[in-house]
Design a protein around this nucleic acid. Structure first.
Length: 283
DNA sequence: ACGAAAACCTGACAGC
DNA sequence: TGCTGTCAGGTTTTCG
């Protein structure tokens, strides 16, 4: 799935097709993904205008003029494709619906927005706009890593006393929201911190250094259109290309790219997920 | 309470 | 060709 940079890339691609525009019709090809769609979702979307298309962590939030907000999560394999007569839309009109096209939004103006998700770990839900933050999926999220609330003092305080590996802590969406496996691995490498190190046993000044590193990795990835490994596509069908800038992710056995380091990238498993790191320059 | 592991699904790929 | 096993940008639930 898509982590924060991929979701932000998708949001930006959806903007011209969706923001300010009316959803003429919503076609649902099944009754849910990871969880059931809310009751009468198609009827509640039909005729609604998208007044704002935002993002919180890995969730895309479409605020509607019906005072409801459509909440979208892409899970591991979710894609949103724009097709039809729109600038930036897929050049070819969509052929017949493809496998795993679960929801199609027909927008006024001729664009179609298709949600495709092979593994069905994604989510779509509707919630009252005046308390989106109280939604169970958003309620416990930590601060946005690119926002002002995520700063050195905050991260130092949140990691203090934690015995879990720093890798696990940064994947915890309650501590900071939006990081996933790729960008945690990449950020820890850039900061020279071992993913195995207990979160509460990192010197405060090293944690402080991690904050701008996280911001920079995410910003660079957004600028590159995200990372395309297998599933992620921009809404036009184009790939992202930040995967070419990975320093450790997926590079087991490869040479460390840190300046002056001769180490070899290793893969280990932490709480069921691969961690890639350089044992030489990450301590 | 905490952290690890399993579960939810499907597809891609390596190896035999 | 086709089988088996492994792995995958996430999150929630279960287990110890």
């Amino acid at each position: 799935m898509p982590e924060l940079p991929e979701v932000e890339t998708v949001r930006r691609g959806l903007l011209p097709a969706m923001e300010g525009r009316v959803i003429v019709r919503a076609d649902l090809r099944r009754d849910g993904l990871r969880r059931p769609f809310p009751p009468r979702m198609a009827e509640r979307l039909a005729g609604a205008r998208v007044v704002h298309l935002g993002r919180r962590s890995k969730y895309i939030l479409a605020g509607l003029d019906t005072d409801e907000t459509l909440l979208i999560h892409l899970g591991m394999s979710g894609r949103m494709m724009v097709s039809g007569e729109m600038p930036g839309a897929f050049r070819f009109n969509p052929p017949t619906p493809e496998k795993h096209d679960h929801v199609v939004l027909h927008m006024a103006g001729g664009a179609r927005v298709t949600f495709n998700d092979a593994r069905r770990f994604g989510v779509m839900d509707l919630t009252p706009s005046d308390r989106v933050g109280a939604h169970p999926l958003l309620r416990d999220l930590g601060p946005e890593p690119l926002g002002n609330a995520f700063d050195e003092a905050y991260l130092i305080a949140r990691l203090r006393g934690r015995r879990m590996p720093v890798k696990t802590a940064l994947l915890d969406q309650r501590i900071v929201a939006g990081l996933g496996n790729i960008y945690v691995c990449e950020a820890l490498h850039r900061a020279g911190i071992s993913p195995l190190r207990a979160a509460g046993r990192i010197a405060p000044r090293r944690i402080a250094a991690l904050v701008p590193v996280i911001r920079n990795v995410l910003s660079d990835a957004i600028d590159a259109g995200g990372s395309s490994l297998r599933d992620h596509r921009q809404t036009s069908g184009e790939l992202g290309y930040f995967q070419h800038d990975f320093r450790v992710y997926g590079r087991e056995g490869g040479g460390c790219r840190a300046p002056g380091c001769k180490g070899t990238i290793r893969r280990i498993v932490q709480s069921g997920r691969s961690s890639f790191y350089c044992p030489c320059c990450q301590r």
